[in-house]
């Protein structure tokens, strides 16, 4: 926490950072723009103040369980839902349930699915979708993707300004995020117990969102409430601060 966010450093450091970023992204970062989460707590930790659109982002569940995987899927769906346009969703398994995606803000009219047999096909189709340039985002569900493959995707995303979301799925006991990757950000999602409602029932899900790595910024960890019907996250309100924070953080979504 002692590492200050980029905006508070001295101007020379900022200039150097901008220069390095320009070299790294070959000048394309600025053209595609940023996608902010709309939650100050997250956005101020991200380099540039939001997710870069023309970049590769990786999302994975914290464990091999289906529920963590579902949380990661919804997180990626929420990011794609907040971009405008058609999303290409590249599948390798047949367990995605489209009505569930529609609840996270991706109605069926916005998603085209491509079903691939192998990870290599899925990566090739993803790159094809990224290079096309008129899509809002390409979401690819893959198990294995090496440094070369992710580098290709990152370059394709930079060229076209299309967001690339790589949904890494657990195929074995190994954490897919331990493999090195060229992604701009890497996220790890887990379910955590949600806040009990005063009555019987079940409220908004709550996720542990871990930013494992980001280019040009430090890692971080948040507890957030899951996607609503427009794909937006929300900052949980601690019970003891309910009256004080009700106006600010909750509405920030």
């Amino acid at each position: 926490m002692s590492i200050a966010s980029p905006s508070t450093a001295d101007p020379r450091l900022n200039a150097l950072r901008a220069e390095v970023r320009a070299i790294e992204s070959a000048g394309h970062l600025g053209t595609a723009g940023l996608l902010a989460f709309g939650i100050a707590d997250i956005d101020e930790r991200l380099a540039g103040g939001g997710l870069a659109r023309g970049a590769l982002h990786e999302v994975a569940g914290a464990s091999a369980s289906l529920t963590d995987d579902a949380a990661a899927t919804l997180f990626a769906a929420g990011i794609a839902a907040r971009l405008e346009g058609v999303v290409l969703w590249v599948l390798t398994r047949r367990d995605l349930f489209a009505p569930g995606l529609a609840l996270a803000g991706l109605p069926p009219s916005r998603v085209i699915y491509a079903e691939c047999r192998k990870d290599e096909d899925a990566l090739a189709v993803t790159e094809e979708g990224l290079r096309h340039g008129s899509l809002a985002a390409v979401v690819a569900e893959v198990g294995r993707a090496g440094m070369t493959a992710t580098r290709r995707l990152q370059l394709a995303a930079e060229d076209s300004g299309t967001a690339a979301l790589l949904l890494r799925r657990w195929r074995s006991a190994a954490d897919p995020l331990l493999v090195p990757s060229a992604a701009a950000t890497r996220w790890r999602l887990a379910c955590v117990p949600s806040e009990p409602l005063p009555t019987a029932g079940i409220g908004r899900p709550r996720w542990s969102i871990e930013l494992v790595r980001q280019r040009g910024g430090p890692a971080h960890h948040w507890i957030m409430e899951g996607c609503d019907e427009a794909g937006r996250l929300a900052c949980p309100v601690a019970p003891q601060h309910r009256t004080a924070a009700a106006g600010g953080t909750r509405a920030a979504a």
């Binding site: 579902a70 569930g100 996270a104």
Partner: peptide, 11 residues
């Protein structure tokens, strides 16, 4: 689109 308001799983 599906009728909204009913909980559905994503997987």
């Amino acid at each position: 689109d599906w009728p909204s308001g009913w909980p559905r799983p994503v997987r």
